[in-house]
Amino acid sequence: MTGRIASLGMYDHPAQHAANDRLWSAIAAVLRERRVAQVPDRLDRARDVHAIWRDPALLFGQACGYPLIADPTLDLRVLAFPIYAGQESGSVIVARADDPRGSVATFRGSRAAINDRQSNTGMNLFRATIAPFAGQGAFFADVVETGAHRASIVAVGTGKADLAAIDRVTYAAIARFEPTLVAGLKIVAPSPASPSLPFVTAAGTDAQTVAALRSALDHVAADPALAAVRETLFLAGIIPAEPDALTPISTLEAEAVRAGYPTLR
């Protein structure tokens, strides 16, 4: 195998680049101590994360949970789940602060923004939040795909959309590092809770390397020298992956289907 890849692109605000680089350097050091071959020196920021997930050379990455349960062609192995400080896993449903509507149900006929139809926090949790109020038809007048949570925040803030579901960790990062972007927004409701975005490796990664990756994650979660790194990334801990850990994601999808709302619209 040549050209192994590492990525932390899911939560990698420019203000967090240095922290993610240090986190990866610490993981990489443990992997090299455990004699893992061809450990990359740097994180891959050149490619879209969706392409990285499909690369059999993926040594370490972080993936959205919804594609893992919805796309049988996505061949990844879940390593562990991060815990984020002060952030219940899920999304916040946001609108402009000056919008008089105060509950999700009152936004019927409005415009929604989503980052991606395959996003758990941007679409699946949004759909689960809307499903109890939607009935059998469309709830929104329009749903625009923005390509990123930050772009969805901008769409709501500039009036191009009225409502969006924003990943809680992403929202916290933007509130910290770009507070003016969220200054004109309000949180209308929380989404249902959901598993955090798991750390993953390619499904073909050998068992010895998987064990080394899990050992490295245990190390970086506890190393006092990385306390400032973890704080910058909101990273409070890392827990082992249970076999059924992603089940709540598929359960929320199934409940929306049963409610007659299989598609966010």
Rank of each mutant, 00 (worst) to 15 (best):
Q208Y: 07
T180G: 12
A95L: 06
F60M: 01
A113P: 06
V188R: 01
A148E: 13
S7I: 07
M10Q: 13
D98C: 03
A15Y: 00
M10I: 14
P248S: 14
P192Q: 13
L163K: 08
V30E: 15
N120P: 01
F199T: 00
P262A: 03
R117F: 12
R45T: 10
S7Y: 06
A46K: 14
E178L: 04
P195L: 05
Y66S: 09
V169K: 03
A95W: 11
T121Y: 03
A105K: 13
N115Q: 07
V229A: 11
T158F: 10
R35C: 08
A6W: 03
N20Y: 01
D223F: 09
A164T: 12
R265I: 08
R108D: 00
I238P: 13
R4C: 02
E178T: 08
F133A: 12
G260H: 07
L79G: 10
A259W: 05
R127K: 15
S103I: 07
A165D: 04
A85P: 00
V169M: 07
I93S: 01
G122C: 01
G86K: 03
C64R: 12
D99T: 02
L181Y: 04
I93K: 01
D142F: 06
E88V: 08
R176C: 02
V78P: 08
L76T: 00
A227Q: 09
A207L: 06
T232W: 06
P190N: 11
G86V: 11
G237D: 13
R150D: 11
G65W: 00
R265Q: 13
P262R: 02
A63S: 15
A57M: 00
G147H: 05
A259F: 03
A134C: 07
A193Q: 09
S215F: 04
R108L: 01
P72Y: 09
P72S: 07
A183E: 13
V92N: 11
D244N: 15
H17V: 02
I83G: 10
L252A: 11
P224M: 03
I52Q: 01
P132K: 04
A6P: 03
A134W: 00
A222C: 10
D55L: 12
G237N: 11
P100E: 03
P179T: 05
D75N: 12
L58C: 10
I153A: 02
L125R: 06
A29P: 05
S103D: 15
S194E: 01
P262I: 00
S119R: 06
A29E: 14
G61P: 14
S89Q: 08
W53P: 07
T247V: 05
A216H: 06
H50R: 14
P14K: 06
I5Q: 11
F81M: 10
R4M: 14
L181H: 08
V200Q: 09
L233M: 10
S119M: 08
D41R: 14
I27D: 13
G90I: 05
G135M: 05
R214I: 01
L79F: 12
A259E: 07
R176N: 00
D71P: 00
L185E: 00
A105I: 06
L125P: 12
Y171R: 03
A165F: 04
G159T: 08
R77H: 13
R101Y: 02
R150S: 08
R150H: 13
N120L: 07
N20Q: 05
A216P: 09
D48A: 15
R54S: 06
